[in-house]
C-alpha cells in the first residue's frame, strides 16, 4: 500500500466530510440556539437538491442554482419557523421534534407527487467535469471545488458570528434570550434568521451533493442519520464540533474503506459509540445542556 494511495484516500475522505460538515452545521446551529431538534433537516437537504436542479435548468446555469436554492429554501425555512415552530417554543423538546418529523414525511411525499419517485439526473457543471492530475493520482475537479467552497462558507460563517454585531446578538441570544429582550432586542427575529440559516445550509448541502449522486425523494433520509451522528460526535450545538466531527467521520469512512470496505458504513456509528462512552457530551459539547 503506497503513500500516494493513502493521500488520495485522505482527499476523498475530506471531500466526503465537507458535505457532512455543511449539513451537520445547519442541524447543530438550530439545536444549539433554538433547542429544536429538526427532523426535517434531511428532507430539506433533498428539497435543496431539487430546488438547485430546477433553478439550474430554468436559468441554464448550475451557479444560479447553487446561489439561489439555499436562499429560497432558507426563506421557506423561515416560513416554517414563523408558521409552525414558533408556537412550540417553551414546550417540551419532543413537540418540535414530532412536528418536524411529520413535516419531513409531507415534504418527501410532496416531492414524489411533483417530480415523481424516480431519480433525476443532476449534471455536473461543465467547468468542473473531469479529473485533475495531482501528480500522485487523479481527483474529480467537482469534489475539489466542494472542499474549497465549504471552506469559504465556514470562514464566512465564522467571521459573521465572531466579528460582527449580528453575530454578537446571535451568540448572546443563544446564551440568555431573556436578557436580550430586556436589552431591547427582538429575539423572535433572531430565531427566525437562525432557523432560516440552518435550513439554507441544509439546502446548500443538497445542491452540492446533487452532482455527486442521483437526486431522488429519499436522498435525505440517509443524510439525516449521518448529520445526527456528526452532531452527536461533535457535541450538540457546537459549531466547531460539527466541523471537526464531520471531517473526522469523512476521513474515518474513507480510511476504513481502504482496509475493510464492507465496514465503511458502520465505522461512523462505532466512532459515535466510542465518543459517547468516553465523552457523553460529545467532543466539543457542554455537559448537562438541555437547551
Amino acid at each position: 500500500m503506497d503513500l500516494s494511495l493513502i493521500i488520495m484516500q485522505l482527499l476523498s475522505g475530506i471531500a466526503l466530510g465537507a458535505v457532512l460538515v455543511i449539513t451537520a452545521l445547519g442541524l447543530t446551529i438550530v439545536f444549539g440556539m433554538l433547542g429544536v431538534v429538526n427532523f426535517a433537516h434531511g428532507a430539506l437537504f433533498m428539497i435543496g437538491a431539487y430546488a438547485g436542479l430546477y433553478l439550474a435548468s430554468l436559468t441554464g446555469s448550475f451557479w444560479w442554482g447553487l446561489l439561489l436554492a439555499p436562499i429560497l429554501i432558507g426563506a421557506f425555512g423561515m416560513l416554517i419557523e414563523f408558521v409552525l415552530i414558533r408556537r412550540l417554543y417553551g414546550r417540551s423538546i419532543d413537540d418540535p421534534l414530532l412536528l418536524t418529523f411529520g413535516l419531513s414525511y409531507i415534504l418527501v411525499e410532496g416531492v414524489r407527487i411533483v417530480f415523481g419517485s424516480d431519480g433525476i439526473p443532476f449534471p455536473t457543471p461543465p467547468q468542473l467535469i473531469g479529473v485533475l492530475d495531482l501528480g500522485i493520482g487523479f481527483f474529480p475537479r467537482y469534489r475539489l471545488f466542494v472542499i474549497v467552497l465549504v471552506a469559504v462558507v465556514l470562514l464566512a460563517l465564522w467571521l459573521t458570528l465572531e466579528k460582527t454585531r449580528v453575530g454578537l446578538i446571535v451568540r448572546a441570544g443563544a446564551r440568555d434570550p431573556t436578557i436580550m429582550q430586556v436589552l431591547g432586542v427582538d429575539i423572535g427575529r433572531v430565531w427566525l434568521a437562525i432557523f432560516g440559516l440552518g435550513v439554507g445550509l441544509a439546502a446548500l448541502g443538497g445542491v452540492l451533493a446533487g452532482p455527486m449522486r442521483s437526486v431522488n425523494p429519499e436522498m435525505g433520509s440517509l443524510v439525516l442519520a449521518e448529520a445526527f451522528v456528526v452532531t452527536v460526535i461533535g457535541g450538540l450545538g457546537s459549531i466547531v464540533g460539527a466541523v471537526v466531527a464531520g471531517l473526522m467521520v469523512g476521513v474515518s469512512i474513507s480510511m476504513v474503506a481502504l482496509f475493510a470496505p464492507e465496514m465503511a458504513t458502520i465505522v461512523m456509528f462505532a466512532l459515535m459509540a466510542v465518543v459517547l462512552l468516553i465523552r457523553p457530551q460529545g467532543l466539543f459539547g457542554v455537559r448537562g445542556r438541555t437547551a
Binding site: Q9, A15, L16, P140, M212, V223, S254
Partner: peptide, 9 residues
Amino acid sequence: ADYSTFMPR
C-alpha cells in the same frame, strides 16, 4: 450513497 472512497483503490 457515496462510493468515492472505493475509487482510488
